[in-house]
């Protein structure tokens, strides 16, 4: 289990990194935290001809509030920010509690010390927490290449199994998480075989209530139930205009399990079991999100 040989580049700036990626084209792979790529290389399942190591590109590591700038109050996270830094960030805890809640579910501290936010999102593993969380939060992803820059909403970013909207030579450089509306509540729940494993099913929920406690907006997303993060539109519809009740939760859970997801079977969970978990976790997560929204009047 030793990686195959590769050419190795250590750009110090983003521009250098983009130039290298442009130069080497499809042969080169950017190396972020490496916590998914390096195991794949050790198994020789991945054999990139060249690695462009982003770990010395200091300008891609930050967490800041765009309150005063063009971001409209978004929380901006540099793509090379370590997951551990996000987990420990007070700003994230305040501005994006859903993200903060999900962080400890990503593997183990030893992995989060190296793993990056951008790396996980760009890898687009359907079992990863961050894509589903970002989809629920309607994050926007800033992508840059040697020739330009664009912003892609999370809803258009994830294209399929380990596939994203990123073009060859293009790097994810920043994730912008918009602020929550007043009277919003969020919850993240997942069920894994063991602490730190990829989840059998995970759910991220964001609900926004009006002054009378009726749901004005809801975004529920899942991980580990498809080729990528899955947005539960049908479950969301059942919540529209409704106040919290046990029946409502069951209706939303049922909609999610039967209409929103078409989960795969694998050695850890059958499709039927995953549907069951989708229903249970949806109900539990929504109950928590409603409760939190009611506690967040501002």
């Amino acid at each position: 289990m030793k990686p195959a040989p590769f050419d190795y580049f250590t750009p110090a700036t983003l521009d250098e990194a983009l130039a290298l990626l442009a130069e080497h084209g499809a042969d080169a792979k950017p190396l972020a935290g490496g916590q998914s790529l390096i195991p794949a290389m050790n198994f020789r399942l991945a054999r990139p001809a060249a690695l462009v190591d982003l770990n010395r590109v200091g300008e891609l590591s930050y967490i800041r509030s765009e309150r005063d700038g063009r971001g409209g109050g978004a929380t901006a996270i540099g793509a090379m920010t370590r997951q551990r830094a996000v987990e420990r960030s007070e700003l994230v805890a305040r501005a994006a509690p859903l993200l903060a809640e999900a962080m400890p579910s990503i593997a183990h501290p030893q992995i989060r010390n190296r793993g990056t936010v951008g790396g996980s999102i760009a890898h687009a593993d359907p079992s990863a927490e961050l894509p589903a969380v970002m989809l629920a939060l309607e994050a926007r992803f800033r992508a840059r290449s040697a020739t330009g820059e664009r912003s892609v909403p999370a809803s258009e970013f994830f294209k399929g199994l380990l596939e994203t909207a990123l073009q060859p030579g293009e790097l994810l450089v920043e994730i912008a998480v918009p602020p929550l509306l007043p009277r919003s509540g969020t919850a993240f729940l997942e069920l894994a075989r063991r602490h730190g494993d990829y989840a059998l099913v995970g759910v991220a929920a964001v609900v926004t209530l009006d002054a009378r406690g009726r749901c004005t907006a809801a975004r529920i997303t899942f991980l580990s139930v498809g080729d990528g993060p899955v947005l539960a539109t049908e479950a969301g519809k059942t919540l529209a205009g409704q106040a919290l009740s046990e029946e409502l939760l069951r209706a939303a859970a049922d909609a999610a399990a039967t209409r929103d997801v078409d989960p795969p079977s694998d050695i850890h969970a059958s499709a039927a079991y995953r549907r069951q978990l989708v229903a249970v976790l949806t109900r539990r997560a929504l109950a928590r999100a409603f409760e939190r929204a009611e506690g967040n009047p501002s």
């Binding site: 075989r193 063991r194 602490h195 730190g196 494993d197 050695i267 850890h268």
Partner: peptide
Amino acid sequence: LVYDEEGQLLNASFMDYLLPTATD
């Protein structure tokens, strides 16, 4: 250890072969 009909082991890694951890 999960073998398929072709005799292939489907979970030949510590990601998929689950040793109990301290929380289990």
